[in-house]
């Protein structure tokens, strides 16, 4: 187990360097000048030079990267935004919970929808339910979240007045300037984002669950269980479900990690101040520290979730349990 964790840790550090170096290289290749942006529209070359020096942008790219790593290791800081000079740590600290409420809330929705529907479809392939489900899966996978989000807002928010059109409320009350807060308002404002975010994943997971259940049902050990005289219910619960959920756990872990890096479209459409929207505005403003910060954070999320998946998988599947 220790060896397993150490190997994982090395892998994590490696991934971290790869991801951040790529981010820096992309910025180096793109001929952007954040200093000119930060200096204002009529800045003289001297002004831009001053800003550039202030932001270390006058150093070669590897030196900038060295400063970034040094800053991270020594000061545990991701630096500060080129645009408003806010600390990237605090930007991510504020954004991550928003994205987390979108992703985890969405995950609860999509799992509680796709698992039962996927199982029912698998039990009755070609039934009407199965055909309807597969049609929705096709729509869900094909439709863009921006389109879905706008349609939902228009329908439920604007026409039916059932939900807010867009906006976010903090779950925990007490932040200054908040227009709405508390769990009820939070959930009320998150309904449409959850649904929008969920649809694609629900579609993918219905298909995944359905395929896995069908595959598992044709396994030899399921036949063995039937030959023992086990009831269909017992066969499903004890032999099919656990085995068919194993791949779902893996993919869920990866999806959650990736999604935490930014649910860009849903956040933009519903004005959720999360990581995805942050990275879009940072991109528009050539705000390298914020982009790198989000990249670092997403990398860490992916690594952590993969670790969680690996450990959970060990519990679920004795074959790969590290001994």
């Amino acid at each position: 187990m220790t060896q397993f964790l150490i190997r994982r840790l090395f892998w994590a550090v490696f991934l971290f360097f790869v991801a951040t170096i790529i981010t820096y290289l992309i910025f180096w290749v793109i001929p952007a000048d954040p200093a000119a942006l930060a200096a204002g529209k009529a800045a003289s070359p001297a002004d831009i030079l001053r800003v550039r020096h202030f932001l270390h942008l006058d150093r070669p790219i590897w030196e900038q990267y060295y400063y970034f790593v040094q800053n991270l290791v020594v000061h545990r800081s991701l630096g500060m935004s080129f645009v408003n000079r806010e600390s990237v740590d605090s930007i991510i600290g504020k954004d991550a919970p928003v994205t987390a409420s979108l992703v985890f809330g969405g995950a609860v929705f999509w799992l509680s929808l796709s698992i039962p529907v996927g199982i029912l479809s698998a039990l009755r392939p070609r039934s009407i339910l199965d055909r309807i489900t597969m049609t929705f899966v096709l729509i869900g996978i094909s439709a863009h979240p921006v389109w879905i989000g706008l349609i939902l807002s228009f329908l439920f928010g604007y026409k039916l007045h059932l939900t807010p059109i867009a906006g976010y409320c903090n779950f925990i009350p007490g932040s200054p300037g908040a227009q709405c807060e508390g769990p009820v308002q939070w959930a009320y404002h998150m309904i449409l984002p959850w649904i929008t975010f969920m649809i694609l994943f629900a579609a993918l997971y219905v298909r995944l669950v359905r395929a896995n259940v069908m595959e598992t049902m044709s396994e030899d050990y399921v036949r063995t269980a039937r030959a023992k005289g086990a009831s269909e219910r017992r066969v499903m619960v004890h032999h099919v479900l656990r085995n068919s959920m194993l791949p779902v756990v893996t993919i869920l872990g990866m999806d959650l990690g990736l999604a935490l890096g930014g649910a860009i479209f849903t956040e933009t459409i519903f004005n959720l101040p999360g990581l995805g929207r942050e990275v879009i505005s940072a991109y528009n403003a050539d705000d390298l520290p914020v982009i790198t910060g989000v990249v670092v954070f997403s990398t860490i999320c992916v690594i952590i979730f993969n670790l969680i998946v690996d450990v959970t998988y060990g519990f679920l599947d004795p074959r790969i349990r590290p001994s």
């Binding site: 706008l150 807002s153 228009f154 928010g157 604007y158 059109i165 867009a166 906006g167 227009q179 933009t268 459409i269 519903f270 004005n271 101040p273 929207r277 505005s281």
Partner: peptide, 12 residues
């Protein structure tokens, strides 16, 4: 309230 999607903003 900043960063609202323009279409959503109009709806609001």
């Amino acid at each position: 309230t900043p960063n609202v999607d323009p279409d959503q903003s109009l709806l609001q």
